[in-house]
Write a protein that binds this DNA or RNA. Structure first.
Lengths: 217, 217
DNA sequence: CTCAACATACCATCTAGTCGGTTTCCTCTT
DNA sequence: AAGAGGAAACCGACTAGATGGTATGTTGAG
């Protein structure tokens, strides 16, 4: 992404066709709008099946505007990944830094990542399905950041195992991959119209994780 | 897919450029070769980024041959899905039909699906990433079959909960989605070069599942 | 003589990205 | 206050290259 954003809301409809009542054409800044629209469309139809033209049309801007703010279509996708990873890392760091017992922190983090994932289901859909559409460099970057996230989570589990709060019959890496597999897959089956609230799902998921780590009597 | 296959191995290299030592050009029937090549390429680069031309070139056949056996590129993908679902369903039905205690069957099925998934990692990669590239009809079909699979697995868990062998503090549907999320995601992190064998991973995964279902004392 | 099993040339369509041009806005000078 | 100057913010027509699919032709077996 290119940094130079004036940040303002812009003077709205230059062309007469602008409909100021649909959300995408509203008072948000152009790059923001593009990112929002791209997220929705990528999640709906996939990266390769979403054309740049469609993105800019939906966002009520022109191609020129988009290529002014973003280097490429790829860059748009990379930005989405960056946003997701930033958010998740921040939340996890916050929880990991708390002072309660480790089992409590793990449970909290486990439930929280579920709720956050559901709150951004489109992001989740994209991020587990579109990694290979990024350039090799950007893929590496994403993977590295994700690894750091996993590492932090893993360190909590290891601590629990060392303290005896968690069983250690399964290596912590496996546990982490196991759990985040489940989390990432929320986007394939969870529907907001369903009966279960995000918090309930989060509770269940955290419970499953903690129970699977419960030490034997 | 079109049924008319002679099934034979075919008269090999028609064109002079045929290299009979690379596996794809070998003695397998043309549709089989196409399916094998498509599976590898779809897993490697994604469905949309793999051109029909590339598939037929790699399989050492021509476009005409391919469109003779398959209706479309979509059809190729649909065939891959069908193959995966057929295999997994067969295995699960076998295990579910055994006579041991339910916890044993669940554990067996859980470990087996991991091993099978790892044995067909390309299939797994494709099936969790490319569903949306299928036509709506075929998507529905795949989903229906997958649902039937999940239902069978779920019924075992429900039985265990009713018998008191499993805890029931988490609904069985959630448990199933939770577990298969983990399984599907194996393809994103498991590498054959790693230290852990498929059976070991299967053991760990089954253990995590069973432990999370262990009833409280 | 027929039909499956291919082969080959071809096309209509779409797509990411570019590039020269124009408008809008801020700033600095006079 | 006026206005010149410059840069950022956009516009939109255009291109070069793919791509899925088809139409038509050929071959060899039964």
């Amino acid at each position: 992404m290119i940094v130079r954003t004036r940040g303002g809301t812009g003077a709205a409809g230059s062309s007469a066709a602008g409909s100021p009542d649909i959300p995408e054409a509203a008072e948000t800044s152009v790059p923001r709008r593009l990112l929002a629209v791209a997220t929705r469309l990528f999640a709906e139809k996939g990266f390769d099946r979403t054309s740049v033209q469609e993105i800019v049309d939906t966002a009520n801007v022109t191609k020129g505007a988009m290529y002014h703010y973003f280097d490429s279509k790829d860059d748009l996708l990379a930005e989405i990944y960056a946003r997701v990873l930033r958010l998740q890392m921040t939340r996890l760091e916050e929880i990991a830094g708390e002072s309660g017992p480790v089992a409590e922190r793990v449970g909290k983090a486990a439930a929280d990542v579920v709720v956050t994932t559901i709150a951004n289901l489109d992001d989740a859909t994209i991020s587990f399905r579109s990694l290979h559409q990024l350039s090799a460099d950007k893929q590496r970057e994403v993977r590295a950041k994700r690894r750091r996230y996993h590492e932090l989570f893993r360190s909590m589990i290891v601590q629990g195992q060392e303290e005896g709060a968690f069983a250690d019959h399964v290596p912590a890496d496996i546990v982490v991959d196991f759990y985040f597999g489940s989390v990432h897959h929320l986007s394939t089956w969870y529907r907001l119209e369903g009966e279960l609230s995000p918090e309930e799902i989060g509770g269940y998921y955290a419970r499953l994780l903690l129970d699977s780590l419960r030490p034997p009597e």
